[in-house]
Each structure stands twice: as structure tokens, then as C-alpha cells.
Amino acid sequence: MTFFLQLMVSGFALGMVYTLIAIGFVIILKCSKAFNIAQGHFVMIGGYLGFTFLVTFHLPVWASLLAAVAVAIIMGLLIERLTLRPMVGQPVLAVIMMTIALSVVLEGLATLVWGGEYKTYHGVLPTITLKVGELSIPPETLIGVIVSIIVVIILMLFFRYTRSGLAMMATAEDEQVVQSAGIKVTTVYALSWVIACIVGVIGGIILGGVSGVMIPLANVGMKAFAVVLLGGVNSIGGAIVAGIMLGVLENVAAGYLDPLLPGGGLANVFPFVVMIIVLIFRPHGLFGLVEIERI
């Protein structure tokens, strides 16, 4: 039983980070109706940024986070201005192709700047140890959980209570109406990319602290992608639930199923199997917004 609970807890922690990254997906999807293939690469860049600020520059953790967020903001603005603004009004497929190109560029950039090597800053992030009975929560994931929860809450408040948040939700519904209301859609787009970059980079710092950084860290984007599909492509609440679900499933599957099979790759496959089964019965995902149709 303890073993099971232990798996649940670390799964939850992992799931929160997935959620964080998935929210980046959801925001871009809501605004531009396109999947951002490069979301995982924001995470990878975030991991490397964490390494640079924490290890190379020896900055304290809070300063590193702030610096990384600052870089993320600049990155988001640049990406929107240089690659996505020219694509406004183009077919969604063209936008997706552009994000593929973006992912390749980011990968090249990471190789150029950090040499594409395996970097680790294990033990640099502050550790909080928490023991509940026999359960112990791995210290580095706990800080990840806390940061993720804070960021997710901030984002939800942002959408619920601020003018810019409302403008973003409105833009997702009808661009033309929003423009007739005097809202600049380009600003809204820029904001959405900035947020996507920030959540990606923060997720990257957390994951980098747990398992180290190298180029394949970008593959976590695919997991977040599964989270988004499972939760419903345009629902932040769905991303939270689905993120935790996938994190827990992955860990529990790793704990119980991997020893049974030689090779032990099942943990990575199992969440996707669940995703496929759910999508068969609920094509909009668990919490996806159904198109409202009335005449």
C-alpha cells in the first residue's frame, strides 16, 4: 500500500509539471487554433537556462527564476513578431509548419549555445523534505509541485479577472468581433506566446532539476500534447486534471507493470493507451468545450 501511495504522490508531482507545460499548448491553441510543436523545445531551453543561471552564474534560485522568465518574455515576443505575425490570416496548417520550423531552430540554437550536452544541476534547487507517515515526497519534485501550482493559479486568476485575460478568451472565439471592440489581436497573440514561453521555461527548470537537461528533454512536449488531448484541447481545467491523471498513470504503470515485462518501456506507453481509450468515448477530451450550435 505504501508503495502504491508513494507512486501516486510522485505521479502527482510529475503530473503538475505536465499540466504546466500543457497549459502552454492550450493557450496557443485557443488563440491561434494551431498546435505548437515547439512547446517541448521551450521546456528544453528552460532547462538549459536553469543550468546557465544556477550553475554558470551562481545566481540564487529566485533570481534565476526571474532571469529565466525575463528571457522567456523576450523569446515569446521575438517568436511572435518574427515567425507568427507574418502568418496571421494564413491557414492553420501553415502556422503548424512554422512551429515545426521553430522547433528545429530552437534545437539548433541550444546545440550552438550549450553544445547540446547533458547538463545537470541536481541538488542546486532548494529541497523541502516532507514525510507523511511512511510516505516521503522526493524533495526536488515537491518544489516543482509548489511552483507549478502557484503558476497555474496565477494563470487561472489572470483569465478570470483581468482585462487582458478576457481579451484572450474573446479572441479565441471571434477575431473580427474582438477587433471591432478595438482590441489589437496582435498584442493578444504576442501575450499568448509570452505565456506559452514562460510556462515552458519554468517547467524546464523544474524538470532539469530532477533529471538533468539535454536536447531530448524536448520530447516531454509530446507528453504534454497527450495531456492536452485527454483534457480537451481548449480547457485549462481539463489540462490540470489530465496532467495529474497522466502523471499518476505513468508512475503507477512504471511501478507495477515494468517489472513484469522485459525492457520496461511500458510506463511510457500506458498513458497514451488510456488517452486513446478516452478519446474513443469522448472525442472532445474530458473537459473540452463542445461547439455551441444553435440556429
Binding site: 482585462r163 481579451a167 478568451m169 474573446a170 471591432s180 471592440a181 478595438g182 482590441i183 455551441i292
Partner: peptide, 30 residues
Amino acid sequence: AATGITQVMEGRRVLGHLSVEENLMVFAHN
């Protein structure tokens, strides 16, 4: 829009997933 012209478009064009009040608030953005 900033000069003081607002168009109410044909076919209602509601922001369907937002509430009535949020729809109103969107046009008070500026």
C-alpha cells in the same frame, strides 16, 4: 474603434463560451 465608431455585426456574432457580462466587458476593453 478608437475614434468612436462601433459596428454591431450581422448575425449576432456572440462570443459563445463567454457569459453575457463578459461579452459586454470585452467591448469596454479600451
